[in-house]
Simulated scan of single mutants.
Amino acid sequence: MLGSNATNLANPSIFILLGIPGLEAAHVWISIPFCAMYTTAILGNFIILFTVKTESSLHVPMYYFLCMLAVTDLVLSTTTLPKTLSIFWFNSREIEFNACLTQMFFLHCFSITESGILVAMAFDRYVAICNPLRHSTILRSPVVAKFGLAVALRGTLLILPFPSLASQWPYCKSNTISHTHCEHMAVVKLACADIRPSSYYGLSVALSVMCLDLFLIAVSYTHILRAIFRLHTRHSQFKTFGTCGSHVCVILAFHIPRLFSFLTQRFGNHVPQHFQVLTANIYLLLPPMLNPIIYGVRTKQIRGRLLQLIPHTGT
């Protein structure tokens, strides 16, 4: 095993993940809510996928996008949580160099993909409310598939330089990562080279994607609100905006932890490291857990289908 204080690690075969620095003694206790959230995310998103697949009335663009979101959440959480739990439970801290770079790629790629899916869902709500008569012609199945392909391709092309650059740096300082997973900057900070290309590129990608996606969502909902305020009755206004309620909650559940994690990692020099790592993990766990709950509670069609699947006993 390569030691954490090794001085010649130009091509390390493994990295060592510390978990949550400073809270090693509490790893087992921290694993309990983490495992519960991960289990909820897995079950909830599989239920969403099964419900949409088996209920023909849900074969519409809104629920196709929801299925894309569920698949993205499953990949995003599974990319990191099994390894994190193995650190907490079995002290299995080693991760191969190539596996670390692969985890880095999937982690950041699917995070950007999820952000793009939320933009597509906002566009779907915009068309459904502002141009309902053309909704079925504008958002046909091939168009929905192209949306999904575009956001996946965007994530892949933007994140591919992350592991590519990281694999070129010489790692002569240490092979110990003070994190539960191979987060981009946590890895490249170990390099004994000028890592400004990685740092600047990572910062530009994070800011450009976040700003662009939030801007597009804001534009969509500006038009949606204008259309809602043109309705004649309060009942119609609340009912129409209620169709967007689930999506708004999902946007908040994704972007608020994401923004908080980004700010603490980039600019929180005085924020304790264990808090930064906890925040990064919550960002990866909270949206996948909350998204199926939000849509399951707020969407009548999904609630109805789930109730049909629950066996009823006669009295």
Rank of each mutant, 00 (worst) to 15 (best):
H232I: 10
A186C: 05
S111M: 11
N269A: 13
R298C: 15
A26C: 14
I293M: 12
V71K: 03
V151S: 03
T39D: 02
V271W: 04
H223L: 14
I112F: 02
L58Y: 08
P292T: 01
T240W: 02
F275S: 10
A206C: 10
Y283H: 12
T7W: 02
V187Q: 01
L58I: 08
P272D: 09
C109G: 00
H184S: 08
C35A: 15
R303F: 05
L18F: 01
L157K: 08
N45I: 11
K146Q: 12
R298T: 15
Y126G: 02
T222P: 02
R298V: 13
L306V: 12
S178R: 06
A36N: 08
F97Y: 02
I256Y: 12
F110E: 00
K300P: 04
P292S: 07
L17C: 00
I112Q: 01
K189P: 01
F50H: 13
T137F: 13
V209D: 08
S92N: 09
V52P: 10
F267P: 06
T54Y: 09
F215L: 14
C211G: 14
H179D: 11
L290M: 15
P132V: 07
A128F: 07
I310S: 07
A218W: 14
T7V: 04
Y283I: 03
L212F: 12
Q103V: 01
T279D: 12
T72H: 04
V143C: 13
Y200G: 03
I251W: 10
S199R: 06
F254M: 12
V250G: 01
H270N: 13
I47Q: 13
K189L: 06
P272R: 05
R125S: 04
H184W: 08
E114K: 13
R230E: 09
L309C: 11
L284N: 14
P272L: 11
L252V: 15
S56T: 14
V187A: 01
G44W: 08
N45G: 10
S198H: 06
P292D: 03
I256M: 12
A145K: 13
F215E: 03
H135N: 12
Y63N: 03
L66P: 03
R234G: 12
V248P: 06
S220Q: 13
T39A: 15
H108V: 00
L69W: 02
T240K: 06
E55T: 15
I48T: 14
Q308E: 15
F123N: 03
T79F: 03
F65T: 07
H179M: 09
C109H: 05
I282S: 09
C100G: 02
V187T: 02
R303M: 05
S208N: 13
G116R: 02
F229P: 05
F262D: 06
L43S: 11
T279S: 13
D213T: 11
N11M: 08
R303T: 02
P288N: 10
V143M: 15
S13P: 00
N45R: 09
T72A: 10
F46Q: 08
A128T: 09
T176A: 07
T84K: 00
C100N: 00
K300W: 05
F267Q: 05
A150G: 07
Y295Q: 10
H108I: 01
F254L: 14
R234P: 09
L17W: 00
Y126M: 11
Q301V: 07
L290R: 05
S167Q: 06
L203W: 09
Q301E: 14
P272Y: 10
K83I: 05
P292M: 07
F254T: 15
I224M: 08
T180D: 00
L2F: 01
Y221D: 07
D213E: 15
